[in-house]
């Protein structure tokens, strides 16, 4: 049963990625903008331009181009970046870990903040604190990541310059990283000086990404908690003398996580999408930042590679959410 459903998911994932690849490939070629125009030297002859076109396979018909590219992608060859003149896969793998660290740190922070506010809001029901939390959260729900980013820059970068404004690590600090996962690696190698520096660089982009998600988590989780708190099993547990805090954390939370989880998964994909603009604002060297450069330079192979990576991340997130939901809900686990 489980093997079949996993196989199903893998097939669906392949179909999804194929669709993504097709759409991006076609879109990139029907919108205006010519990658060759960006790279020809002034005074190049028409023959030079044609030669360059042929070199990148841009002289073929659209379906033929797609076929050639897809064939290569299947065996792991994403082509060569037009603007950076380097292997696309290599570029992606070099930058992806920075974005993954950023996104997961943001996810953890969002869950902690959103979860804590939801629990506090539930515990404070029927006190004046509850409407205050609801109203504040309601307003903040409307604030997008880039506005948070700008507000944080003003507050923690300019007004109180506590955290570094850009980059991933202080360039004067250097250890020879064996992996591109700097944050995780510095922790594993117990280089806390480096870890703290990287973490300090991440504070603002992480908050900018995490806060919009945290407000959503608060909204959904609090609603689910309130619903669980009026169930008979909570009433019985209260009669048994369980404290309110334990009622929320032990009785209600576990049943409220389910509905909150699936929405958090969807919202997390938005967060990953948000890395594009947030990484740009903080000059953070991840794939989001790279994506903007790639689009500006009409770097078709790189854009295609980036979109496929984002697509793969979304699929993995959704799969992870489903697996987590099954692990947390005994009813799903036992079928």
């Amino acid at each position: 049963m489980i093997a079949i459903s996993i196989l199903n998911r893998l097939i669906m994932a392949a179909v999804t990625l194929f669709g993504v690849a097709l759409i991006v490939f076609v879109l990139l070629r029907v919108v205006p903008g010519d990658p060759i125009a960006m790279m020809i030297a002034p005074g190049a002859s028409p023959a030079d331009i044609l030669a360059l076109r042929a070199r990148y396979g841009l002289d073929l018909s659209l379906p033929a181009q797609f076929g050639v590219w897809l064939q290569a992608v299947v065996i792991g060859d994403f082509g060569t970046s037009i603007s950076l003149r380097r292997d696309v896969l290599e570029l992606l793998l070099g930058r992806l870990p920075a974005t993954l660290e950023l996104a997961f740190a943001a996810l953890v922070v969002a869950v902690l903040i959103g979860g804590a506010v939801a629990v506090i809001g539930t515990l404070s029901r029927r006190t004046p604190l509850e409407p205050a939390i609801d109203a504040t959260n309601g307003v903040l729900l409307a604030v997008p990541d880039f506005v948070w980013a700008l507000a944080l820059v003003l507050l923690l970068g300019v007004l109180f310059p506590i955290f570094p404004l850009s980059g991933r690590i202080d360039p004067t600090l250097s250890i020879d990283f064996a992996t591109p996962f700097y944050l995780a690696e510095s922790l594993v190698r117990l280089r806390f000086d480096i870890f703290l520096d990287i973490a300090a660089h991440m504070v603002m982009p992480v908050l900018a990404l995490a806060l919009p998600l945290a407000t959503v988590i608060t909204r959904i989780l609090k609603e689910a908690l309130l619903e669980a708190m009026v169930q008979d099993y909570v009433l019985l547990a209260r009669l048994k003398g369980m404290s309110e805090v334990r009622l929320v954390l032990q009785e209600a939370l576990r049943n409220a996580i389910g509905p909150a989880l699936s929405l958090t998964g969807v919202q997390f994909t938005f967060l990953v999408g948000g890395t594009v603009i947030v990484e740009r604002i903080f000059s953070y060297p991840g794939i989001g930042n790279m994506a903007i450069d790639a689009v500006i330079n009409r770097d078709l192979p790189l854009i295609q590679g980036l979109v496929l990576v984002f697509g793969a991340i979304f699929i993995v997130i959704n799969l992870g959410v489903d697996l987590l939901a099954a692990a947390l809900n005994p009813r799903l686990r036992h079928g």
Binding site: Q231, Y233, L236, A237, Q250, E251, R254, L328, R331
Partner: peptide, 8 residues
Amino acid sequence: QTALNPGR
């Protein structure tokens, strides 16, 4: 149905 916690 509702008097036992489904998650415990």
